[in-house]
């Protein structure tokens, strides 16, 4: 079912987008508020991993083109009702995550590899978004400021220039593992959910006949 052209297909597409978008929105609002209030480390990356898990699971159940992007749009608009000063940043983040997942599943629908790679990219994006936002707020000087601070820290600690890159790679690897775990969890949840729903249908089939 890679293309849904009929009204029935369109209804199912949007019904999935609404239901899974609401689920993602509920996770963002409920769990997100909880983790943020606890000042939980890597809270944003964890929420991103859960978002990828929801999208990857949904893609196993309805492998329709564009459904991840539509779900992200619904979740982002759900997020817009949450109280707080700034919502455009998180909404933009959700949309980008939806776009990343969509692009990878567009290439290889229902694939574990797509779920894993999408998870990695989304987690890295989640961390990078903070930097992008700061760049948009403060401009080019911020980049020079960060580079100067890293050079100074390296001088103080007596580290070589390459050590900074190693630390950066280690950090990116940690993010990638969290993101990939989210993608893998979603892929498995989606497959098990599909199996569970099909089993339920088979059990009901004799009655329907």
């Amino acid at each position: 079912m890679s293309r849904l052209g009929s009204n029935k297909g369109a209804d199912l597409f949007w019904a999935h987008a609404a239901a899974f978008g609401a689920l993602w929105g509920a996770v963002e609002i409920t769990l997100g508020s909880f983790l943020h209030s606890l000042r939980f480390p890597f809270c944003g990356v964890l929420l991103t991993a859960l978002g990828v898990a929801i999208l990857a699971a949904q893609r196993q159940l309805l492998p329709a083109r564009g459904v991840s992007l539509a779900t992200a749009a619904v979740a982002a608009l759900c997020k817009s009702i949450s109280p707080g000063g700034i919502i455009l940043g998180p909404m933009f983040g959700i949309m980008i995550e939806g776009l990343i997942v969509e692009l990878f599943f567009l290439a290889v629908p229902r694939s574990l590899m797509a779920a894993l790679v999408a998870g990695v990219f989304c987690a890295c994006w989640s961390a990078a978004q903070q930097l992008v936002t700061q760049y948009l707020y403060y401009g080019q000087d911020l980049v020079e400021l960060y580079l100067a601070a890293v050079r100074l820290a390296g001088d103080w600690l007596g580290l070589s220039a390459g050590a900074g890159w190693t630390a950066l790679f280690a950090f990116a690897a940690l993010l990638s593992i969290i993101g990939a775990a989210g993608g893998c969890l979603g892929w498995r949840l989606g497959r098990d959910a599909r199996q569970s729903i099909e089993d339920g249908r088979q059990l009901r089939a004799p009655d329907a006949a």
Binding site: W14, A15, A17, A18, A19, G21, A22, L23, G25, A26, V27, I29, T30, L31, A70, A73, V74, A75, L77, C78, I81
Partner: peptide
Amino acid sequence: LAAAVSVALHLLPELQRRL
């Protein structure tokens, strides 16, 4: 999309409860 968001907002409290 607007319709799907309306439905999602309607479903949100129930899904939050289930979570």
